[in-house]
Design a protein around this nucleic acid. Structure first.
Length: 155
DNA sequence: GCCAACGTTGGC
DNA sequence: GCCAACGTTGGC
């Protein structure tokens, strides 16, 4: 089993939005970056665990955990002209973008903030804190997963 | 294949 | 809103 971190702007899709989904599950759509696409398509498998990260908000940080319930398949929102993630270059015959389905495991009682990540010596190598990192999907090590979850109570 | 211009991300 | 650090685009 592998570990990941998925970023989302809470104004777009927050952990509460996921909690409100039927079965606490939804597809993770809208990723439009090739490196992240490759991970969604090739590397992220059923049963993998995922941190939910809120970006571009008051307190950026990890807000909970999820589990992958469906491995990579074409992101159909790219085919919908009404979608804000519409991409005319992606077609059902030749899909350009991929997504996975996730299910909420738990929300943290309080966010494990970006500031806390930066201050923790064991988390210095997290991809999320590397300068200039902009990937919305990044791998997390087992040690990093343990270190974060060890501080967080979930509900 | 190079590279300048441009767009996007995301913390601050 | 600023800006650094990327990724993408497209002319050549």
């Amino acid at each position: 089993m592998r570990y990941w971190l998925f970023k989302s702007e809470p104004s777009c899709f927050s952990i509460k939005d996921l909690a409100n989904c039927t079965g606490h599950r939804n597809h993770w759509d809208g990723v439009r970056n090739y490196q992240a696409r490759n991970m969604l398509r090739d590397d992220i498998k059923i049963g993998d665990h995922v941190f939910f990260y809120h970006s571009s908000c008051l307190v950026p940080g990890i807000v909970g955990t999820m589990e992958v319930v469906k491995a990579g398949y074409p992101d159909f929102t790219a085919w919908d002209p009404e979608s804000e993630h519409f991409d005319p270059k992606s077609t059902p015959e030749n899909p350009r973008w991929y997504m996975v389905d996730v299910r909420l495991i738990g929300q943290f009682e309080r966010p494990f903030s970006l500031q806390a990540i930066k201050q923790n010596p064991k988390l210095q190598d997290m991809v999320i804190v590397r300068p200039g990192n902009r990937l919305s999907i990044t791998p997390v090590t087992k040690e990093e997963w343990r270190e974060v979850t060890r501080w967080c109570r979930e509900y």
